[in-house]
């Protein structure tokens, strides 16, 4: 039993928590841009944490159900409808055979997560189903393709449905402009003025932002123009290239690079940033590693306790 893709939309991808353990071969992780929303969707259906879901960016995506099941929607509100009736994210919905599930366009946030009871049945490659288009790895075909009209997304049918909703306090505020950054080991190579500019001014998300990285535009950070010896890149790294405009490297980042880094966006803030659209503005807030870890543990503990 399966969902049939009737409209492919802008970008809909099969994702799990990512492809780990192959970065030394240059293989990036992929995985959900908004990890917290992804984890909540599986929690709502009592799925294992890593069950395969669909990450829908922007919308214009339509599915038809071939069999009854229970779904969870989290993340952005993309104006989803079930048989033309509006439905809300951060909760479960019962699905019957023949139901039409449509995602229109974003009213709040940018990326929605669709989980199905038991997870989508997709064959992993290198231990993960995460779709990385740039590397031609993962997804429905194993070759890194985004979902297309006519694709079939298999799941195990069930008529059992539990109405569940994420507690209000646990739902992230996508309007928040604060993006937390851990100061990097190269932070002291930036001048006081550059640091003040980085933490004291607003930056705008540019249209050249995708799953690989978010390119920002704002007051230029001059930094050290020399570049560095190429080194491994962590999730969330904030690179400052020669034009002084920060690039935040996200799930589909390259594994190695040689631009200086002023710091690293935390995993939780990386999810918030991923819900921003071109034109949205943000500001960077300085946090310690301990604060970043505490925030992550708090969010994960909420899910664990709720389960």
């Amino acid at each position: 039993m399966a969902f049939n893709v009737l409209k492919s939309g802008m970008l809909a991808l099969v994702q799990d928590l990512g492809r780990h353990g192959y970065q030394h071969l240059g293989v990036t992780t992929g995985g959900p841009m908004d990890e917290l929303a992804f984890r909540w969707a599986n929690a709502l259906l009592d799925n294992p944490d890593n069950s395969a879901q669909i990450e829908i960016t922007f919308g214009m995506f339509t599915l038809e159900a071939q069999a009854p099941t229970s779904i969870a929607l989290t993340g952005a509100n993309l104006g989803a409808t079930l048989n033309d009736r509006p439905i809300l994210p951060w909760q479960t919905h019962a699905i019957q055979k023949g139901d039409i599930l449509q995602f229109k366009q974003p009213s709040h946030g940018l990326r929605a997560y669709l989980a199905v009871k038991g997870g989508f049945d997709v064959a992993p490659i290198l231990g993960s189903v995460a779709t990385v288009m740039r590397e031609s790895l993962g997804g429905q075909t194993g070759k890194g393709h985004k979902l297309q009209k006519g694709d079939v997304l298999p799941y195990t049918a069930t008529s059992k449905h539990d109405q569940k909703i994420v507690p209000r306090i646990a739902i992230p505020n996508y309007d928040s402009k604060d993006i937390a950054v851990v100061m990097g080991y190269q932070f002291d190579t930036f001048s006081g003025l550059d640091r003040a500019r980085f933490f004291g001014s607003e930056f705008t998300v540019t249209p050249q932002s995708d799953r690989m990285g978010y390119r920002m535009s704002g007051q230029a950070i001059n930094g050290n123009k020399k570049g560095i010896i190429s080194e491994g890149i962590a999730y969330g790294s904030v690179q400052i290239p020669n034009d002084g405009q920060p690039i935040i490297l996200l799930r589909d980042r390259q594994t190695i690079g040689g631009y200086p880094k002023i710091g690293c966006v935390t995993s939780f803030s990386g999810g918030l940033l991923s819900q921003k659209q071109p034109g949205d503005t943000i500001g960077f807030q300085c946090v310690s590693v301990d604060q970043a870890e505490r925030e992550r543990h708090l969010q994960l503990a909420r899910i664990a306790q709720w389960r």
Binding site: H20, Y22, I229, E231, G232, A234
Partner: peptide, 12 residues
Amino acid sequence: DLIPSYTTLLVI
């Protein structure tokens, strides 16, 4: 995950 490079090793 480990990312070895020229002079550094990133440990995840």
